[in-house]
């Protein structure tokens, strides 16, 4: 005989239909057909008892004088002070703990391996980006315009000098003659460039050569006829 049967034998609810196999089988045990009826009756009876007791609660009285004999001890004189101090300490610890917890939970964001590459790509693909201008050209726009104007002026001067040299010799030399100075400039103003090239142009007539570098302003570029390039900085 199984333990289950030993323990329930003789119980009012025990019947033959409730076998050990019910417990051994997987899934829920079988439910008796009258389960709902019996449970309902029990719940209703319990509620009725509670209601009856609740209605009669004020009928039962215990003498106040009797109950007062069970007196609670008087608190210590410093109970309030001690408790207030304990509460203050506890709240302080709680605040510290909350802050510590917050700090412990904060972890600085980690930069992923591809972050730099992706950011540079994004900057490259977006010309409107202000930071992209820094990458492409650190020069301010006005300076770029000035540079373009100078280059154009220099090109014009070169053309003029070339034409004059061609005219003086009667025919265009295949190479600049020695002592002819062809100059270009990159970073000085158009007016100073004009002056400089005019003086340079006059220099060969005076027999000037590389010694006339003083004629070239600072940051100017002097291209000698031999193809040598000299800069002053």
């Amino acid at each position: 005989m199984s333990i289950h049967h030993d323990q329930t034998a003789g119980d009012p609810g025990e019947d033959d239909a409730f076998r050990d196999a019910d417990l051994a089988a997987p899934g829920l045990p079988s439910i008796r057909a009258d389960f709902v009826d019996r449970a309902t009756a029990r719940v209703v009876a319990d509620l009725a008892r509670i209601r009856a007791e609740a209605e009669a609660v004020d009928d039962l009285r215990l003498p106040r004088t009797l109950l007062d004999e069970y007196a609670a001890p008087s608190p210590s004189l410093d109970f309030v002070a001690r408790t207030a101090a304990a509460i203050a300490a506890d709240r302080g610890h709680a605040d510290d703990a909350a802050l510590r917890d917050l700090l412990e939970r904060y972890t600085p964001p980690k930069i992923s391996a591809g972050f730099v590459a992706r950011t540079l790509d994004a900057l490259r693909d977006s010309p409107a980006s202000p930071s992209l201008r820094l990458v492409r050209d650190a020069s301010p726009p006005r300076r770029r315009q000035l540079r373009r104007a100078l280059v154009a002026a220099a090109a014009l001067v070169i053309v003029v000098l070339g034409v004059r040299a061609f005219g003086r010799g009667g025919s265009a030399p295949s190479q600049p003659s020695p002592g002819t100075i062809v100059a270009s400039a990159l970073s000085f103003s158009p007016s100073s460039a004009t002056t400089a090239f005019a003086r340079l142009n006059a220099a060969p007539a005076r027999g000037a050569g590389e010694d006339d570098l003083d004629l070239v302003p600072l940051d100017g570029l002097l291209l000698l006829a031999q193809g040598a390039m000299v800069t002053r900085r």
């Binding site: 008892r49 509670i50 209601r51 007791e53 609740a54 209605e55 009669a56 609660v57 039962l60 009285r61 215990l62 003498p63 004088t65 009797l66």
Partner: peptide
């Protein structure tokens, strides 16, 4: 609230039984 009243009723009943001697006296 009903359960509270029920519990109180039972408590009072038990106390009256236990303290019947003093209850009668007081």
């Amino acid at each position: 609230e009903g359960t509270v009243k029920s519990r109180l009723h039972r408590a009072k009943e038990a106390l009256r039984n236990r303290l019947s001697r003093y209850v009668g006296h007081s």
